[in-house]
């Protein structure tokens, strides 16, 4: 049985400005929000610009804001996003420059990752003494940018390093003590780095890969706080 869904899609073209277009879509509730967008593109408007590739939350390229919440539309089922006869308000990710319609320029994400050295951390599994249930790893990050879009601090501080880069830094330190260079640490242990986070935890809420960036930032903060206190009392470490 199909549902009648109204898609309200935010459109943008550099020459035409922005507007919202409305599309009626008949679609099964078990299909995804991305399926609906592809139906619109295939049957109603071939000019709709959006990005996708894998359809299974592995490439991280299709991230969008749907009804005000950052999601990967390729794994967001229609029935989990709305009801029969309901509306889906679809917008591009926040805090990124919009290229066209639903496609954003991901440069702000990768510039931040580059700032901390684009660490490539091999899959390690749980560390010694770490319970499998507690195991979350930056290696699972699919670089979708949902965390940057959802972060209220990124929205107000363009220099803020952001959740993904800070989570990556914490993971590098956790896996291998001391691998961060002074240059990277200066970017992390900085007023626009880990100390800028307001602990809204929106990044962890929207992360589709269970990286838990906010938890990572808090862990990094604990680490840096204890280190500062150790240095304050003159302890070596």
């Amino acid at each position: 049985m199909s549902w009648q869904i109204t898609y309200k899609i935010k459109r943008y073209h550099p020459d035409q400005g922005s507007r919202v277009d409305t599309f009626q879509v008949e679609i099964e509730p078990e299909r995804t929000v991305l399926d609906g967008i592809e139906l619109i593109w295939a049957k109603q408007d071939r000019t709709l610009v959006f990005r996708h590739a894998c359809h299974h939350a592995s490439c991280g390229s299709c991230g969008l804001v749907v009804n005000g919440v950052e999601v990967l539309p390729c794994i967001k089922l229609i029935q989990d996003a709305t009801t029969d006869g309901g509306t889906l308000e679809v917008e591009p990710l926040r805090n990124f420059p919009v290229v066209a319609d639903l496609v954003v320029d991901m440069a702000p994400f990768f510039e931040r990752m580059q700032l901390i050295g684009m660490p490539i951390v091999g899959p390690t599994g749980p560390l010694p003494g770490q319970e499998p249930d507690e195991y979350t790893a930056f290696e699972n990050c699919i670089e979708c940018g949902l965390c940057l879009s959802a972060c209220p601090v990124v929205a107000t501080d363009s220099k803020y390093l952001g959740p993904a880069a800070l989570a990556a830094a914490e993971r590098v330190i956790e896996v291998s003590e001391g691998r961060l260079s002074d240059e990277v640490l200066a970017a992390v242990d900085n007023e626009h780095g880990l100390w800028r986070c307001h602990a809204a935890f929106e990044c962890s809420e929207v992360c589709p890969s269970n990286v838990d960036p906010a938890g990572r930032i808090m862990a990094l903060r604990r680490r840096m706080t204890f280190e500062r206190l150790r240095r304050l009392v003159g302890a070596k470490g």
């Binding site: 003590e177 961060l180 002074d182 242990d189 900085n190 007023e191 840096m224 706080t225 280190e227 470490g237």
Partner: peptide, 15 residues
Amino acid sequence: MRSEYERRGGWSWIT
């Protein structure tokens, strides 16, 4: 964990 680098911010949060 490391040598020297310029720390900025942080004490405000800790205090």
